[in-house]
Design a protein around this nucleic acid. Sequence first.
DNA 1: TTCCTTGGTAAGTGCCACTATCCAAGCACC
DNA 2: GGTGCTTGGATAGTGGCACTTACCAAGGAA
Lengths: 214, 214
Amino acid sequence: MRLGELSRRSGVSTATIKYYLREGLLPAGRQVNTTTAEYDEEHLRRLRLVRAMIQVGRVPVATVREVLKHVDDESLGRTIRMGAALWALPQVSEPDEEDEYVRAAHQEVGELLRTLGWANAQALVTLSPAYRSLVVAVAALRRLGYDWESERLVAYAQLMHRAAVLDLDFVETHPSEAEKVETAVLGAILAEPLLQALHRLAQEEESARRYGFE
Amino acid sequence: MRLGELSRRSGVSTATIKYYLREGLLPAGRQVNTTTAEYDEEHLRRLRLVRAMIQVGRVPVATVREVLKHVDDESLGRTIRMGAALWALPQVSEPDEEDEYVRAAHQEVGELLRTLGWANAQALVTLSPAYRSLVVAVAALRRLGYDWESERLVAYAQLMHRAAVLDLDFVETHPSEAEKVETAVLGAILAEPLLQALHRLAQEEESARRYGFE
DNA sequence: TTCCTTGGTAAGTGCCACTATCCAAGCACC
DNA sequence: GGTGCTTGGATAGTGGCACTTACCAAGGAA
């Protein structure tokens, strides 16, 4: 398969495919001669994956490159590869540690993890980007004066933990190691828009149940 | 309070505040004379809200304007205002109805709603942006060859419904109508980064529990 | 008086995800 | 073997976005 066909079958313009090749999101094809390169099904699959990450997952191009670099790094074990790939993701602005709300949020999230008994997460606290994102989100809500009880946060966390269990159960069903890493990373990236859409739809449903359409 | 103080108390530069005023995200202050305008606590609150939407919620400036327009529209009832504000949000690219995966996703999501008994959501199907986002997400996953069983999707949906119940219970605790709308919208916007962060943290925790750090 | 700050406006910046244009080298078909 | 299309490769340009800079004349504050 050559560039034109790859473009046709993926629905991505040749110009964009060239751009992805240049940016290293897609490995080069097998060079036949100066003006011809041959692509295979794996290229098509990778291209679809890249597109899904960018368009559905809203992951920036530079981040996709980082994530794939880890996914492809066969010198590492699965868990490490998965972790590295997921940690390459978030790009949330660093919390301002001077800010009083941020400090309070650190406290609050720390307590949350103790309440939940997430010992592993506690150990990783200083490292994980997810932890930082959580602190930023909590601080923003508190800054706006939303003071729900801490039980509410615990309840949300338990719901998301059950979602994570579902995620990982699904990964288990995949046989090969390579596929497991890819599935886990993609699943994590694409599960988010899915969960977000379900959340909004659920809000609409529940709102209509309670208040009707008026 | 004048521009400088508003800037100091919010941590937002005067240039950016001027930009927000120009873009209509912030109402003008009370003009004292040609070179002085007076801002109040409500301006500060609105400014923090705008910042949270943009920085934590990653909502584009133009969208924030739309959302606030609906929030402020007192000619409408609460439910309508809330719905309108939330529907102004998503900006997901339109699904390509020609695409076979998109058509299959429509089918699948329709079945999901029937299984869940979300009658209200079914009625709104053709309208809701959340529904469209869901279709796009499901189609993307299927296109990549991820074929989980439909029960998995149902399970995710039930989790998110429970999150939505928590959301709306919280809104109930707020007394005033105006606050309810604002709370609901902000809660919906800011709950998403929160849930996302909790989801990622929960994945790390669960992954570490199952596989350790190796 | 001298200096700073104010609101208002216009123009510029940096980043990002493409997109357009150009090129010389093949290949395909008549 | 001529004609026209496609290829990989490279460079430059585009449009959108969220600010940021620079400048202005008018108004306090010392």
